[in-house]
Design a binder for these strands. Structure first.
Lengths: 355, 355
DNA sequence: TTGAAAGCGATACCAG
DNA sequence: CTGGTATCGCTTTCAA
């Protein structure tokens, strides 16, 4: 005897003892639980993952031992042994932006308690996304959700050769890395422009976030331009703007647009809180909305509904997109064939007083 | 020969072949890189973690092999072997609320590329937090950040016996599980109330989120009450409200408060977007702010600054709190003693036109 | 500067 | 229903 009890925790590192403190007490292992419950480690493992197969009496002893030891399964070991993890990785352009929070929430809710979520932001930069994806792949995530739909070649390659499911959510791309759950930004912008035309506005300005590395903004601008073309309206490049995000971005854009002659009749601001910023600016200047200037926005939220006048806006099903994305991942992970590679969740135009 | 090359990927599971598809191609392992670079696996391992120790020529060959194989280190295996992970776990009350996003961003920015972030929400429920913490501990995170500062006994126990660093960020508690980086909600509410009293307001209402399981809201209400007491003002329970979150919550609270007689002169709404909701409601009803009713808020943001009249508010250093929390974690993980167990990042009163 | 051998703590497979 | 044994892919330790 003696040697027999020489488990890991009895050993001492020869080198620095480090600031041991409370950290010295490492958690119990499955072995400890097994010993206490007087079963083999395999039975403990089963008790945790397929309790139905284990004798109820045995099960009870094991649970007793688990409680007594405060045992928490070591998923690192579990994942290594089983060659699969329960971590889903999520990359959004910005952690700050509450738009993405909706999708994140949808993913988290749908994944439930059996999966964990790893999150990173790309900073709206393709290389940022690549870095995040590489990190996730190193953690051997079992699935990936990307908001952006434009990627570096290496990002695509890495994900594809990792062979894990991936859902893109930012735009309804035709050729996704793997799957996509989203709506058509192009169509949404087209429809909103058409809506404004239908209301009788002819000189309609357009404001989006910077197009660089942002396929959503790009698609929306294209949708706007196509609508103008289709309705035989001329394009005036002076009233097609890219703006910094934030309320001030929208406010600044509106100020600039109001200087242009001939005067614009309406403006469609899409992205972030641009439209709200513009509306508040209009109020500050006593520009009557919609008489002097009509304003339409996108990414409808409670705020757009509560300002005066309430904003006409596009509603995107961000939460549902997150739920759907997670379901698609789960389906694939479960080994089922994907129900669909490309899921269009659509969008709605919410007409209010601002147009 | 033959047997010698019989590596894992040559074997076939006897059972179901599963929907192999692209997933069949599993990534390269360190062994593959080693073989290609004609070095031992140990040298590859070193090349990755302490390149300075490896011969430059060898290093070059190894990097060549890494690129050729598309090797991505398997952190699961690495973590198991080294008994430490590079994952930090973060629990916020709600993933939707952009308040918390600031802190999350601060943590993410400070952790940098060497750590990954796992996020979960507690749904404002203590048991939700416990579940999330248990999951994180199972993943063997190397540190935890909790927004909430009230916890179930088991949550505290689990974290403490896991012996990993933990920072709480929601309130400057006296007795944290481990460390805290925050500001005093009590003091903040006290000061804002005092500010209103200083402005000459006497009948001051107070609105917060529901107190249940929410220590921040509780502390703020206590701060408000203490201020009234200190300035010799009477407490009228009819004007101390708990409100649902959201703009509508704030709007509803204001409507209710405006019915109370004698009329209130000012209201301090703290939490979520309550104050903004109240202000917008006042505007809709043409209640003059601040003449008819003064409004003060908390959690200052761009919106509160851009509405008319701009809102007097409390500014909390949420981003800095995230940065500080991450630094504290990093310090501990690095083996350094913590610079401080309790860090007060303070707050500011931002006076504007609404009071 | 490099390598061999022994784990890390679980799971999978097969046998009993 | 239960247990033995061989991994999983990497790091640690020790020796060369």
């Amino acid at each position: 005897m003696g040697k027999i009890n020489n488990s890991r925790r009895d050993r001492k590192k020869p080198g620095a003892v480090k600031a041991a403190g409370p950290a010295a007490a490492r958690g119990a292992r499955m072995t400890d639980v097994a010993r206490l419950a007087e079963v083999s480690i395999m039975t403990v493992s089963r008790a945790l993952r397929q309790p139905a197969v284990v004798d109820p009496e045995t099960l009870k002893r094991i649970h007793g031992a688990i409680n007594a030891t405060g045992y928490l399964p070591n998923r690192i070991a579990g994942s290594l042994a089983s060659q699969r993890s329960n971590i889903v990785g999520l990359v959004v352009p910005s952690l700050r932006n509450s738009l993405f929070a909706e999708t994140v929430k949808g993913v988290a809710d749908t994944l439930g308690a059996n999966f964990d979520l790893m999150i990173a932001d790309s900073g709206y930069v393709l290389d940022g996304e690549e870095t995040a994806v590489a990190a996730f792949l190193s953690q051997r995530v079992c699935g990936i959700v990307l908001h952006n739909t434009k990627h570096t070649p290496r990002t695509r390659r890495m994900i594809q050769s990792a062979g894990i499911p991936c859902v893109e959510t930012g735009n309804l791309v035709r050729r996704p890395i793997d799957m996509v759950a989203s709506f058509s930004n192009h169509k949404a912008a087209f429809e909103m422009t058409a809506f404004l035309v239908g209301k009788g506005y002819r000189r309609i300005a357009f404001v989006s976030l910077p197009l660089r590395d942002n396929d959503r903004a790009r698609e929306r601008q294209a949708g706007y331009l196509q609508a103008l073309k289709q309705f035989g309206l001329p394009v005036d490049r002076r009233i097609v703007l890219e703006s910094m995000p934030g309320l001030r971005g929208g406010a600044g854009a509106l100020i600039e647009l109001m200087k242009v002659r001939p005067k614009i009749e309406a403006v469609f601001l899409t992205g972030d809180v641009l439209a709200t910023g513009a509306l508040l600016e209009a109020n500050r200047n006593d520009w009557r909305v919609p008489d002097t200037i009509a304003i339409a926005g996108s990414d409808d939220n409670e705020l757009q509904e509560c300002v005066s006048p309430a904003l006409t806006s596009l509603r995107f099903p961000r939460y549902d997109i997150g739920c759907t994305a997670a379901s698609m991942l789960l389906n694939r992970i479960g080994g089922n064939l994907p129900p669909a590679q490309i899921v269009d969740l659509g969008f709605q135009i919410i007409p209010r007083q601002s147009t």
